[in-house]
Design a protein around this nucleic acid. Structure first.
Lengths: 110, 110
DNA sequence: ACAACATATGATTATATAATGATATATTGA
DNA sequence: TCAATATATCATTATATAATCATATGTTGT
């Protein structure tokens, strides 16, 4: 387990990576509706349970989501309302630059 | 050259990937000051010329920056003011969740 | 304690991407 | 056209990460 770099720019890059993946983004979108269980996310996203669990842990480590156990369920939610705001802003930008992103072939994942 | 997926969530993930890397983020920060040449970016960031060029092409393909040739120089700039806004918002979020990001070991790049 | 359900963890494999170094392509002025 | 400068492209290598499968852990009600 390496120690993370202290440089702000590396932290910021890491923060953005939380958003930079379709599966995690799908999870974040589900979480915008409020606190939901892992099972709910699995159903809504059609991702495998372990895949969702892994991504949730990633998002939690990175501070984007928080979790709370209630009975045998674990509820996840966005840890800060500004995360939804950032998603909105990205939507807006995307609406105007979508053509460029659509044609971007250097980042091919999706 | 594959055709990009049409799903909005994939486009959004791709957009975020533009931001999700220290080198590109460093370039974007330089561009916040206005239009600058590739050489300026190389000097400011200490990245290699070809590395900067590759990342700039990536950012351009993804619609985050635009370029304009003037004489033998190519000037790059942010393509939309909301990109700076998004960076600011990320800074804000980071200020509050920084500890989590710092400790995140699942995304180790930096 | 046991069965049933909910979630997490770990190892493995496949893929995506970043960095580098060498080279190619502008562009300008002499 | 030639030399000099600025930027882009390409191939290679190294690394980071996502997905999967199997299994482990935790929780509840009986």
């Amino acid at each position: 387990m390496l120690v993370a770099t202290k440089k702000p720019i590396d932290l910021q890059a890491k923060l953005f990576r939380g958003f930079a993946e379709p599966a995690r983004l799908a999870i974040l979108q589900v979480l915008r509706k409020g606190a939901v269980t892992v099972g709910d996310i699995v159903q809504t996203t059609n991702l495998s349970q372990s895949n969702v669990s892994n991504h949730l842990n990633c998002l939690k480590d990175c501070g984007l989501v928080s979790s709370e156990q209630r009975g045998r369920f674990v509820y996840y939610q966005l840890s800060d309302e500004r995360i939804a705001k950032l998603l909105d802003l990205a939507d807006e930008i995307l609406a105007d630059v979508a053509k460029g992103v659509y044609e971007c072939t250097r980042l091919q994942n999706g």
